[in-house]
Design a protein around this nucleic acid. Structure first.
Length: 114
DNA sequence: GTGGTGACGACAC
DNA sequence: GGTGTCGCCACCA
């Protein structure tokens, strides 16, 4: 937890994504202080993507709300998972993206609130 | 040690 | 507003 590794940090953040919410690679990267390395976030997920992975990677999309990683989930697995959480997906893109978007920095707000 | 790759993002046209 | 290009850094051959 809160590993010093970039990967570990990504896992922690992604696992903290609330139900029915999504975030972007850039948001996570920025939260980790590596906004310029948003690719590393997706890359980390790629490695983390496994049968024992409890990481809701399907809640992570690019800044456009497009299911860029859908192909890696296999078929429409990613879209199905999102729809099950009440997220509207159309044409491999989240319709109400701004509605369900969740920024990792929200964590700090929750911390302040208690 | 070098080169290539990648589930992205920002900018230029 | 779509398309092309560059940058970015960790990992693998």
């Amino acid at each position: 937890m809160t590993e010093n590794n970039f990967f570990g940090m990504v896992y922690e953040v992604v696992k903290l994504i609330p139900y029915g919410r999504v975030t972007s690679y850039g948001a996570i990267a920025a939260y980790l202080g590596a906004k310029s390395s948003s690719r590393m976030v997706g890359w980390a997920l790629n490695v983390s993507h496994g049968p024992f992975s409890e990481i809701p990677a399907h809640r992570v999309v690019n800044r456009n709300g497009i299911l860029s990683g859908k192909a890696h989930f296999g078929g429409d697995r990613m879209q199905t998972l999102l729809e099950q959480e009440g997220i509207l997906v159309n044409n491999d893109k989240i319709v109400n993206f701004k509605e369900v978007f969740w920024d990792p920095k929200e964590l700090e707000k929750e911390m302040l609130k208690g």
